[in-house]
């Protein structure tokens, strides 16, 4: 079967991969790059456990073929921690009891991170829309929202204006 050559940056590291036509980004991350923080919960984009940030946007890595991604940049939960320092969202999830079984947590964090990168001060509705595609069966979402809000309320940086889509 013909392989496709793909240059991919994952958590700041560059990789050149030869992938098959069926290989999903999820498989590449988990199986090749051993980034098992990315979880598979449904395989059809309904649960959000496999959420990663692809070129700045939260996506379900089960619904992307790696062969489509030449030149792309991916961030997974493993990429949130910088030099041993937790991302404020990770710390907030610990502090606010936003974690129970933890299986949805990596995807949830990535959806929240993608939101805050574009809109550092979202309101509760915006937070809910950002994580509506991340199912959680344990927490009832309440403490997850509280955790994200605690980070969203912080910081002085101006909210990015992401209303306008700039085609360039």
């Amino acid at each position: 079967m013909k392989k496709i050559k793909v240059n991919l940056t994952v958590n700041g590291k560059e990789f050149t991969l030869e992938v098959g036509p069926k290989e999903r980004l999820l498989d590449t991350l988990r199986e090749r790059l051993k980034l098992t923080g990315v979880k598979e919960g449904c395989g059809i984009g309904e649960c959000g456990a496999c959420t990663v940030i692809l070129n700045g946007e939260a996506v379900n890595s089960c619904l992307v073929l790696t062969g489509q991604l030449d030149g792309s940049e991916v961030i997974t939960v493993e990429g949130l921690e910088v030099e041993g320092r937790l991302d404020p969202l990770q710390q907030a999830f610990i502090d606010h009891h936003a974690v129970q079984c933890g299986f949805c947590t990596p995807g949830m964090l990535m959806s929240a991170r993608a939101l805050l990168d574009k809109n550092p001060h979202p309101n509760r509705e915006e937070i809910k829309r950002a994580i509506e595609g991340n199912l959680c069966r344990c927490t009832g979402y309440q403490q997850i929202i509280e955790a994200i809000e605690s980070v969203a309320g912080k910081g002085e940086e101006e909210g990015a204006d992401y209303f306008e889509w700039d085609p360039d």
Binding site: T36, G37, K39, E40, E78, V99, G102, F103, P106
Partner: peptide, 21 residues
């Protein structure tokens, strides 16, 4: 007391290994 979960760190960093991992 509402102490923090002792397994939360592993889980928020993606270090926690589940069966499939």
């Amino acid at each position: 007391k509402s102490v923090k979960r002792i397994d939360a760190y592993e889980k928020v960093t993606g270090r926690a290994k589940y069966g499939a991992d």
